[in-house]
Write a protein that binds this DNA or RNA. Structure first.
Length: 838
RNA sequence: GCGGAAGUGGCGGAAUUGGUAGACGCGCUGGACUUAGGAUCCAGUGGGGAAACCCGUGCGGGUUCGAGUCCCGCCUUUCGCACCA
């Protein structure tokens, strides 16, 4: 054994290098043991609910896009905790729906077996990512303990008269063999599979979301949401201010064969009891220019209005448009239509105008009928040209009130004045809108009306993988809601769950399941065999999390009062008009029923951006999907998290490049090394401390703005400062940095915090305070311009006066050479710049 | 067509309010240490020029002492919605 020579310096053992897999395993275990991520729901004061959109647990496993979204939310949540809030950051699974079912069908496995496996895999990947999730309060929408309450929500809407069944033209996907909501039809094709959607007439359950249109629109003004999301919702709700106008119909040739068409009454205005057509228009001011009318082909009045002469043509046209798919209808720009043979009377001019049918008028919007003003509407103009219908100009473009020449195709303006409009001539358009609406109203021919694009929400799905709609049909008693005590209506575990083309759910093939006693009379009843839309599952899940361990109530009133509405919600903008609209609607309904004391579920919402890879969209077919497991393995979760946040502004997303990850890992390595080398001897360097406090300020400002990329950049800069030169960093220079970095790299921060001698979790240590005194620079480089051109900088105190700065600048040769003669003018921005104008 | 967002080095991106354009990172170049380096460290890195300087934020105008930022007119990309009366 060799005795160490006391004169030789004892060899310092090389610091242990940063090994993420060891550190991360250690802290995940420690968090579990200590319950670090548990939220004291009942006790915590200053509650903060940091919600992220829950994922659909696909068989492929966690997508990097999910992780990007969750990490951003996790950073925000951890930051709030460090600021002293009790943070609740739950996560669950949105596992019902066609997506899961189709996949199950494809691989020939039952979703009841498949989904739990996917969830287990998701859970493993999510935990590996280091999220501050309290897994004791998770939800799985396919768990009867959850969908019991989804069915309860349905019953509440039914009780309120907001759920109703009607036979309706619905979007039918021939591939997925189910009905789709309007929101799920993109350009006439199924959002999911891309198949061309057909129209079918089926009995469907609807929610009366359209009754809430005005509130859904108005409340947008007072919630703190991403503007892009609010705009999308406003457009989707699509409020139009206009008028409904009634046009009297002249007798049809059918009743008086062989005679001239005659007015049904002596008046140009409709008479109660006589046939009339109601139209919606946003331009009542143009009524003097209405030279014909158009009804949607499926309009109920078409039957009566069609003359014998025209019947064959009309029937043929109706048949053709019915079978026509939506895509060719929308893409096809040429106008088609057929004359019904009947005429209506323009209530403004008293002139008879022909009534046509055409598929450019949609039954679903307004009244399904329009007054056509080809002089001022592009579509009407095109139609009028195809069928040689008269075009009358009633708004003049110019101030001189002269009729604009008709060689202009049409004028779509609202700044002109009326012409050819009788007593309204010369009136500006906005004024004429009001005046003409009033004039028509006074004669019983119309009224001001607001119309919305938003339609009622069809929730019926003729599929298997969803919560059965809790209704029972009894021949004697009619439709009966399933009593609350009988919930849940359990989805049976059947092998044959394949959808067919019959228009009914696979459940309709299972008599043993659907034949039940009527809850009212006890006689033979039949269950509703459709299941509900998966957007109903996600329409209320945020209410469930705090009460996820309770079976007696959907959500505990006290916990709900404490934790809701959600303080911060982060998710993808692809849900701007689906999930986010439905959630608001359901919350409003429950509020109106006295069940919730707030009507907006998400106080703040931010849409995150999306990740591309090497500039391209990630997709399975391109094979360029980032699999998180691989990166956890190679770089560690902390590096992966931090890298994802460093890609670009969180709300815009960024481009993932494997090559660039190393920079973030280097940063964490350097942070690790700095702590390992740090000393408690002596005192910290004032210049370093100044940078530290500037960094604290920057990071504290950036996180709430979700400017994670610049926060990370600031911390990188600071580590570079700490390590500059040959110096040994002082512990006080590093401790606050470990706190700053902790939301981004939680495992590493915990480890370093422990190495710095702390026993409690870094997440219970608070957020470092920024001291403006310490942050202030002693000397700055003041920019000096001559004639607005940069000519150099001068080193001065930040509070230097204009006179001093000017003097210094003129003594600086490299600047002074540009100043010829006396300055005419001097612009001085304190602490920023000096501009000398000569 | 309507509505939103965005065009900045080789690349991802900085520049909260009109005030030093290109922070931070990748990549690249050179160097140090090395048997070796795809490790680490140091220096450099918008373009042109020997330099003084000049030019540079999609294009064209404008406002201003000063414009990536504001105004007018275009172009391009991208995402929603789309015959919504």
């Amino acid at each position: 054994m060799t005795v160490p020579n006391p004169h030789e310096p004892t060899p310092v053992s090389a610091p242990v290098a940063y090994d993420p897999s060891t550190v991360e395993a250690k802290w995940q275990r420690r968090w579990r043991e200590r319950g670090t991520n548990h939220t004291d729901l009942a006790g915590g004061d200053r509650p903060f609910y940091a919600l992220m959109m829950f994922p659909y647990p696909s068989a492929e496993g966690l997508h990097v896009g999910n992780l990007f979204a969750f990490t951003g939310n996790d950073i925000f949540g951890r930051f709030q905790r460090l600021q002293g809030h009790t943070v609740f950051e739950p996560l669950g699974y949105d596992a019902f729906g066609i997506h899961s079912e189709n996949y199950a069908l494809r691989i020939g496995e039952h979703p009841m077996r498949l989904i739990p496996r996917n969830i287990a895999n998701f859970r493993r990947q999510l935990e590996r990512g280091g999220l501050m999730v309290d897994w004791r309060y998770s939800v799985d929408t396919t768990d009867p303990r959850y969908y019991k309450w989804t069915q309860w929500v349905f019953l509440k809407l039914y009780e309120r008269g907001l759920a109703y069944k009607k036979k309706a033209a619905v979007n039918w996907c021939p591939n997925d063999k189910t009905v789709l909501a309007n929101e799920q039809v993109i350009n006439g094709a199924c959002e999911r599979c891309g198949a061309i959607v057909e129209q079918r007439f089926l009995e469907q359950w609807f929610f009366r979301i359209s009754e809430y249109a005005e509130r859904l629109l108005n409340n947008l003004d007072r919630i703190d949401w991403s503007e892009t999301t609010k705009t999308a919702q406003r457009n989707w709700i699509g409020r139009s201010d206009g008028a409904e106008i009634e046009f009297a119909v002249m007798g049809t040739g059918n009743r008086e064969p062989g005679t001239e068409a005659r007015r049904s009454s002596g008046s140009q205005f409709p008479v109660p009891g006589s046939p009339s057509i109601r139209v919606f228009t946003t331009r009542p001011d143009t009524i003097f220019g209405a030279t014909y009318m158009v009804l949607a082909p499926e309009h109920p009045l078409v039957e009566r209005l069609t003359t014998d002469e025209q019947r064959a043509d009309v029937e043929a046209y109706r048949e053709r448009t019915k079978r026509q798919d939506l895509v060719s209808r929308k893409v096809n720009k040429e106008k088609t239509g057929v004359f019904t043979g009947s005429h209506a009377i323009n209530p403004a001019t008293g002139a008879p105008i022909p009534i046509w049918i055409a598929d450019y008028v949609l039954m679903e919007y307004g009244t399904g009928a329009i007054m056509a003003v080809p002089g001022h509407d592009e579509r009407d103009f095109e139609f009028a040209n195809v069928f040689s219908l008269p075009i009358v100009r009633v708004v003049a473009d110019t101030d001189d009130n002269e009729q604009t020449p008709l060689d202009a195709p049409f004028i779509d303006n609202t700044s002109g004045r009326l012409v050819n409009s009788g007593q309204f001539d010369g009136m500006p358009v906005p004024e004429a809108k009001r005046a003409i609406t009033e004039w028509l109203a006074s004669r019983g021919a119309g009224q001001a009306v607001v119309n919305y694009r938003l339609h009622d929400w069809c929730i019926s799905r003729q599929r298997y993988w969803g919560p059965p709609i809790p209704m029972i049909y009894c021949d004697a008693c009619g439709p009966q809601p399933v009593p609350e005590k009988d919930l849940p209506v359990t989805l049976p575990d059947i092998e044959d769950f394949r959808p067919d083309d019959s228009g009914v759910s696979p459940l309709a093939r299972h008599e043993a399941w659907y034949i039940v006693p009527c809850p009212r009379c006890g006689g033979k009843g039949r269950r509703e065999t459709d299941v509900s839309d998966t957007f109903l599952d996600s329409g209320w899940y945020f209410l469930r999390y705090p009460s996820a361990d309770r079976d007696d109530v959907p959500f505990d009133p006290e916990l709900t009062r404490k934790w809701l509405p959600v303080n911060s919600y982060i998710g993808g903008n692809e849900h701007a008009v689906l999930h986010l609209m439905y959630s608001r609607f359901i919350t409003m309904v429950l509020h109106d029923m006295g069940i919730l004391d707030f009507e907006e579920p998400f106080t703040r919402f931010r849409a995150h951006g999306h990740i591309t890879r090497n500039g391209a969209k990630m997709s399975k077919t391109k094979g360029n999907i980032v699999n998180p497991d691989q990166y956890y393995e190679e770089w560690g979760a902390d590096t992966f998290r931090t890298y994802l946040m460093f890609l670009g502004p969180y709300e815009e997303g960024g481009d993932f490049r494997d090559q660039s990850i190393s920079g973030v890992r280097r940063f964490l390595d350097r942070l690790w090394a700095s702590v390992a080398e740090s000393t408690t001897e002596g005192s910290p360097d004032v210049d370093v401390l100044r940078k530290l406090h500037q960094t604290i300020q920057k990071v504290t400002d950036d996180i709430p703005r979700l400017a994670y990329n610049t926060a990370i950049a600031a911390m990188m800069t600071y580590v570079n400062v700490v390590r500059q030169g040959e110096r040994t960093p002082h512990r006080e220079e590093l401790e606050p940095l470990v706190q700053l970095v902790s939301p981004f790299a939680p495992h590493l921060a915990e480890e370093l915090w422990e190495q710095l001698g702390h026993r409690e979790s870094v997440f219970d240590s608070g957020w470092p305070k920024y001291d403006p005194e310490l942050a202030r620079e002693q000397l700055i480089d003041l920019a000096v311009q001559v004639q607005g051109k940069m000519r150099g900088t001068i080193r001065v105190r930040p509070d230097v006066t204009q006179e001093e700065a000017l003097k210094t600048a003129r003594e600086t040769p490299s600047i002074a050479r540009f100043v010829t003669g006396e300055p005419k003018k001097v612009i001085f921005v304190k602490g920023r710049l000096l501009n000398i104008v000569v």
